[in-house]
Computed example of a mutant assay.
Amino acid sequence: MMKKYDYIIVGSGLFGATFAYEATKRGKKCLVIDRRNHIGGNVYCENVEGINVHTYGAHIFHTSDKEIWDYVNQFAEFNRYTNSPIANFHGEIYNLPFNMNTFNRLWGVLTPQEAQDKINEQRLESNIKEPKNLEEQAISLVGTDIYEKLIKGYTEKQWGRKASELPAFIIKRLPVRFNYDNNYFNDKYQGIPEGGYNVIIDKMLEGIEVRLETDFFENRSEWEESTLKIVFTGMIDEYYNYQFGKLEYRSLKFENELLNLDNYQGNAVVNYTDSDTPYTRIIEHKHFEFGTQDKTLITKEYPSEWKPGDEPYYPVNNKQNNELFQNYKKLAEQEDRVLFGGRLADYKYYDMHNVISQALQLVEKEFSNI
Rank of each mutant, 00 (worst) to 15 (best):
E136N: 13
V338N: 10
L344D: 09
I93R: 11
E135L: 11
L259Y: 00
A359P: 09
E225H: 14
R123Y: 01
H62E: 05
E305G: 06
I128R: 00
N260E: 09
L174I: 15
Y302I: 08
N256F: 14
K118Y: 11
R35S: 15
L31N: 02
G153D: 02
Y314K: 01
I128Q: 03
I33A: 06
R80A: 13
R123F: 04
Y264K: 07
T55L: 15
N317A: 08
Y249D: 12
A23C: 09
E213I: 07
N219Q: 11
P167W: 14
L124T: 10
N354T: 13
Y347L: 10
Q358M: 01
T280D: 09
N79L: 08
D336P: 00
N120I: 13
R250W: 07
K300T: 06
E257D: 08
K149D: 01
I146S: 06
G266T: 01
L174Q: 13
Y56C: 04
K4P: 02
I282W: 05
I151D: 04
Q113L: 13
K329Y: 15
T111H: 13
E67F: 03
K253Q: 13
S221V: 11
T292L: 10
N317P: 00
A359D: 10
Q116D: 00
N101V: 06
S275F: 11
T24G: 00
N263I: 00
Q122A: 14
K157D: 06
N73G: 10
N354H: 15
T277W: 02
E301G: 07
S126C: 09
E206W: 03
K319C: 02
T277L: 05
C30H: 00
N52I: 12
R80T: 15
Q293F: 08
Q361Y: 07
T273N: 04
P193G: 12
G108Y: 03
L261D: 09
L141D: 11
K118L: 07
F325Q: 10
F178Y: 15
G342W: 08
A138W: 03
N79A: 08
T292R: 07
L96F: 15
I8H: 08
K28Q: 04
E257S: 07
D274W: 12
A115Y: 11
Y7S: 06
N42G: 00
E92W: 00
N271M: 04
N241M: 02
Y21P: 00
E194Q: 12
I236A: 08
I93G: 11
N318R: 01
K295V: 10
Y21H: 13
E284M: 04
E136R: 13
P85Y: 15
D262G: 03
R281Q: 02
Y350G: 06
L150P: 10
Y349T: 05
Q293H: 11
A163K: 05
Y5P: 09
K29F: 05
E305N: 13
Y350N: 09
I298T: 08
A58F: 01
G50S: 07
S12D: 09
K172S: 13
L174R: 12
I33R: 04
N182I: 04
G266L: 00
V109D: 01
T214E: 15
Y180T: 04
Y350R: 04
H38R: 06
Y347H: 06
G191T: 04
I51P: 06
S304F: 07
Y180A: 09
K129E: 11
K330F: 02
T214F: 14
D336S: 08
K307C: 00
E213V: 13
Y180Q: 09
L228A: 11
V48A: 09
V109P: 02
T82M: 14
Q358N: 15
A138H: 01
